[in-house]
């Protein structure tokens, strides 16, 4: 089943220099393993291809049902140097939530995932 990340997780992002961070949080604790499994560093880097110039780092926080991603070279120089509307990376959070996950039907039913993704 296709599952929209925005239906199973929420997120907040911020900045440190030219790096944006995106913390993505499972809406229910039992959904957190899906994030660990599907939101790999490689997939997230591919998702943001063309939007960032540097590498992607991933950190796990199972205690908070959350992953933290650092997106390097995301902010056009960052801070006041940046000419971007989102110079402080405030909405990279929702850009990440545009991802769609492929979850086996049986697992999706067991986890009671909201369906209907395209």
């Amino acid at each position: 089943m296709r599952v929209r990340l925005v239906d199973i997780a929420h997120a907040r992002s911020g900045d440190k220099g030219d790096t944006a961070n995106v913390g993505v949080i499972a809406m229910r604790s039992e959904w957190y393993p899906l994030l660990e499994q599907h939101l790999t560093r490689e997939r997230v880097a591919a998702h943001f291809q063309g939007m960032i110039t540097g590498a992607v780092e991933r950190f796990e926080l199972p205690n908070l049902d959350a992953l933290n991603f650092l997106l390097h070279g995301a902010l056009g120089g960052g801070g006041t140097l940046s000419l971007k509307t989102d110079a402080q990376g405030k909405v990279f959070s929702t850009a990440l939530l545009r991802m769609v996950l492929d979850v086996p039907d049986e697992e999706a039913r067991r986890l009671k995932l909201p369906g209907g993704g395209t």
């Binding site: 997120a11 911020g14 913390g23 949080i25 950190f59 933290n68």
Partner: peptide, 16 residues
């Protein structure tokens, strides 16, 4: 729990 965790991850680097 959700509103607090959203703030906890704000501007986070290496969480450890």
């Amino acid at each position: 729990r959700h509103t607090v965790i959203e703030q906890l991850v704000y501007e986070m680097g290496n969480p450890r």
